[in-house]
């Protein structure tokens, strides 16, 4: 079986890419194929990249405070395109916003201080789930 494929992207205009890059590196070292789109991405760009690359998981990082706006658009687009790719979000997210994001369909939210091990485990589990669901379909 080929490696799990993850899209790592910076949604919105903020340039704080430290976390996204560290996570991308860690996922690579853990055996994932990682597509890194860089900064200043729109939800449309993220969805299109996920489609073209046929990824198993989408990971977006946002530190601008605009997470609710961008993520709700992202999730809406994914639904419209009938795409069943799990989404995880990382960044400076106020705690009360975590359930809001999950309600939108985000599978996991990683706050500052999340360990790489934890992120890798969650992403792997979500990728496995997705592949299994696809096999059955």
């Amino acid at each position: 079986m080929s490696n799990y494929k993850v899209l790592v992207s910076k949604l919105g205009l903020d340039g704080h890419d430290r976390g996204a890059k560290v996570v991308a590196r860690a996922l690579k070292d853990a055996g994932f194929d990682v597509i890194y789109t860089g900064i200043r991405q729109t939800p449309e760009q993220v969805v299109e990249a996920a489609i073209q690359e046929d990824v198993d998981v989408i990971g977006v990082s946002i530190l601008s405070g605009a997470h609710i706006h961008h993520v709700s658009r992202l999730m809406k687009l994914l639904r419209e395109r009938g795409l069943n790719v799990p989404v995880v979000v990382g960044g400076t997210i106020p705690i009360p916003d975590v359930p809001r994001l999950k309600q939108m369909g985000v599978r996991e939210v990683f706050l500052p201080g999340s360990s790489l091990k934890e992120i890798i485990n969650v992403v792997r589990r979500l990728a496995e789930e997705k592949r299994r669901a696809e096999q059955q379909a």
Partner: peptide, 10 residues
Amino acid sequence: SRGALMADRL
């Protein structure tokens, strides 16, 4: 490395 990190798309 086991995995790959692809950024050309950027």
